[in-house]
Simulated scan of single mutants.
Amino acid sequence: MSAVTGARTLRVGTRASRLATTQSQHVADLITRELGEPTALVEVTTEGDTNRAPLAQIGGTGVFVGALREALLRGDVDVAVHSLKDLPTAPADGIALAAVPPREDPRDAVVARDGLTLGELPAGSRVGTGSPRRAAQLAALGLGLEVVAIRGNVDTRLRKVADGEVDAVVLARAGLARIGRVDEVTETLDPLQMLPAPGQGALAIECRADDEHLRALLASLQDRRARATVDAERAVLAALEAGCSAPVGALAEVAEGDDGDELWIRAVALAADGSVEIRRSASGDPSDAAGVGHRLAGEMLADGAAELMDNQ
């Protein structure tokens, strides 16, 4: 296929970590293979890469996104690739979410010493995570584990297990798969035990909103089912963020029903210590994915999720 944007090489902005560059190279290869466009990766340093304080103290997951978006708006890059769970739910001026390609397995995974599962770890074992959502759900399981706050890229976190600093870590299975370390997983967690972050396992491809030609090109990379699931999950998060600062997990799937595709979604909001949880599910039409998620969040707020904010 000949390049349809002319001779220019599309500059794909990425964070410099191994996982980020692997994900961005995957998208760059997809652009070249499916659209016939030459690409080149451009590394961009974000605050989340340089500031080692807990994410909640420096602005949450959005700290990984801002610098890439600024590079887009300056014209330093043409495309930005993010882990979709890192995107703030509020729209960004001048930025378009052009496509969500096919999604990896969204579940969380355990990498523990001696090949153990969570249930096999002795009480008092140290489990590392940087996620309040994971920490709350680990506490809710009632296994007597000590949750230890950690930061760092995937390789750094896995090394903490190998060095004995912690007995296990909980990570996104998708990230381990993308960097070729999924064989180290000792347990993939059932969503009944731990619901993933909204958008986990999916990638976001962004470009400038006023670049209509590129937006149209990138739109052809969209996976319809993946976009519906993440739109529903992010709608839950957006609605709960407005009235609840509690850790939130959500997972949607599109399944074939008697009358066509159906969207199913489960979500949970928890007290930080896991002592209280509001867990609900809903279904609806994938074409109204955001609406399904928003209505589910409304039910959760009405059922007490809003009160969890006062207990954080």
Rank of each mutant, 00 (worst) to 15 (best):
V127R: 06
G291C: 05
L145D: 03
M194Q: 06
S281A: 15
G36Y: 13
V166M: 05
L251V: 04
D210K: 01
R208Y: 12
V185F: 07
L296N: 02
V4S: 07
R74D: 12
V42K: 04
G152W: 14
L145N: 05
L218I: 11
T61C: 12
T21I: 15
G60M: 10
G115P: 00
A209L: 05
S220D: 10
A269S: 13
E165N: 07
G13R: 06
G260W: 06
A255H: 04
E120W: 07
P102T: 12
A98H: 05
P54T: 02
D261E: 15
E299A: 13
Q25W: 01
Q193D: 13
D288Y: 00
A306R: 12
T45M: 14
R178P: 04
A80Q: 09
R134L: 13
E253R: 09
V248T: 14
W264V: 11
T39K: 07
R178V: 09
V100T: 12
D93K: 07
E241N: 15
T129G: 11
L192T: 15
A267S: 06
T156F: 15
P88Y: 01
A209Y: 04
A135N: 00
L192K: 02
D211K: 00
L171N: 01
V65Q: 00
V254C: 11
L121S: 09
V27F: 10
R173I: 05
D210N: 13
V81M: 01
E146N: 08
Q200H: 13
T46E: 01
S83M: 07
R215V: 03
P247L: 07
A28F: 08
V127G: 00
R227K: 11
V161T: 02
A96Q: 04
E34M: 10
A136S: 14
V79S: 00
G298K: 05
L240W: 00
V248G: 02
A20G: 13
A297N: 02
R178G: 03
C244L: 04
M1Q: 10
E47D: 07
D29T: 15
H213N: 08
R178C: 10
L192C: 13
V154S: 10
G75S: 01
I179D: 08
R134W: 03
A174E: 00
A255D: 12
A235M: 12
D167S: 12
A20K: 01
L171H: 08
R159D: 11
A238K: 10
S283L: 14
G36T: 08
G48L: 05
R173N: 07
A56D: 07
S125V: 15
R227V: 04
A282L: 13
G13C: 03
T156Y: 15
G6K: 06
A168R: 05
A290M: 09
A20W: 15
G201A: 08
I150V: 15
L145T: 02
G274T: 12
A269R: 09
S125C: 03
A67L: 11
R181C: 05
A246R: 09
T21P: 02
L192H: 10
L138C: 03
R225W: 01
A136C: 11
V230M: 09
M194V: 14
V42H: 09
T21E: 10
A246H: 01
Q312S: 15
P54I: 00
A162F: 11
T89F: 02
P196A: 12
E120K: 03
S83E: 04
A162L: 08
V127E: 00
P286R: 15
Q222C: 14
L221A: 12
D93S: 12
P191W: 11
I205D: 10
G48H: 03
E37V: 07
V12Y: 05
R295N: 06
